[in-house]
């Protein structure tokens, strides 16, 4: 049982990393806390479902179209709402959380509730790893996440937009003096974050059903991982995904499944008390601020 728990803890960690990477990218570049992140995840899954089941678009094409659509909604949200409140953290949180609530509760109002709302797995197959059955979808999630992280790294370090991303992330004023349009880059970062939420949904949702409640869980998980790792720190998010992923899976196995979300929240609280800026956070510690 122990080895099986470790295998599934690793997979759970990768899923958490996938869920958090978009939130972290947006915050790390533009400083925007996108609390509509979980809603974008669910929006993308429902759009894929609708394209497949209502119009008959093939699965792969539906997924690609829903990722593009979600990225577009992220850009629209920045262009028409966030641009006016950017820099005012509380206003950003309220605005994005409000948008997220509208999206999620609108789906609930329309009756998108039930087990029929699910996406098919990519390949229906399973393997035995260290004596534990692991389905192909979970293995694909791990491979997909590694490829995605590599592509993101290449994008950030080897493209001119990536250079602009890094410039804005380090100092917006200096980046402006180089002719970098900070609002355009911030919009791109929100849009890319939304697209990453949609990509995560595309590969993770086939493991279960599409439910409105999952949107809130995704947001809490993304927040837990990013806060524990240190907001904006990629290395921190990877380490925190492992910490939370293992904690959740071991809690699930040895204590009870209803405790897993509580573990994430307690982990946030503990880290905030011991290290307010997160494990690898660059924000100032409390004693430095006084």
């Amino acid at each position: 049982m122990f080895v099986g728990t470790v295998v599934y803890a690793l997979i759970n960690s990768v899923i958490l990393l996938l869920m958090a990477i978009g939130f972290n990218l947006t915050f790390g570049i533009s400083g925007v806390s996108n609390f509509a992140y979980g809603a974008f995840y669910i929006l993308s899954a429902f759009v894929t479902w609708m394209l497949m089941n209502w119009i008959g678009v093939p699965y792969f094409l539906s997924a690609v179209l829903s990722i593009i659509f979600t990225a577009f909604i992220g850009a629209v949200m920045y262009r028409f709402i966030l641009i006016r409140v950017r820099g005012q953290v509380l206003s950003e949180v309220i605005a994005t959380f409000g948008i997220g609530l509208i999206i999620l509760e609108f789906f609930r109002y329309l009756g998108f509730v039930g087990i029929e709302y699910s996406l098919p797995v990519f390949i229906d197959h399973s393997f035995v790893i260290a004596g534990t059955y692991v389905d192909m979808q979970r293995i694909l999630i791990v491979v997909f996440c590694i490829v995605l992280i590599l592509l993101l790294w290449l994008f950030i370090h080897h493209t001119s937009i990536g250079l602009a991303f890094r410039g804005i992330a380090q100092d917006e004023r200096t980046a402006l003096t180089f002719g970098i349009d900070s609002d355009w880059i911030a919009m791109l970062s929100v849009s890319m974050g939304a697209a990453l939420a949609a990509i995560a949904a595309t590969v993770v949702v086939p493991l279960g059903t599409i439910s409105v409640g999952e949107g809130y869980d995704v947001l809490i998980n993304a927040l837990a991982v990013c806060i524990i790792g240190g907001l904006g720190s990629t290395g921190g998010v990877i380490v925190a995904s492992l910490v939370v992923g293992f904690a959740q899976r071991f809690t699930d196995t040895y204590i009870g499944p209803h405790w897993t979300m509580i573990v994430s929240l307690v982990a946030i609280l503990l880290v905030l008390i011991v290290k307010p800026s997160g494990l690898y956070g660059k924000q100032k510690e409390l004693e430095e601020r006084i």
């Binding site: 890094r166 410039g167 100092d171 004023r173 402006l176 003096t177 180089f178 349009d181 900070s182």
Partner: peptide, 18 residues
């Protein structure tokens, strides 16, 4: 960023490099 593109560059009293 548009003004820089026209050919006006500046330094700051409080330097802020990357």
């Amino acid at each position: 960023h548009k003004i820089v593109r026209l050919g006006i560059s500046r330094t700051f009293q409080m330097v802020k490099p990357f």
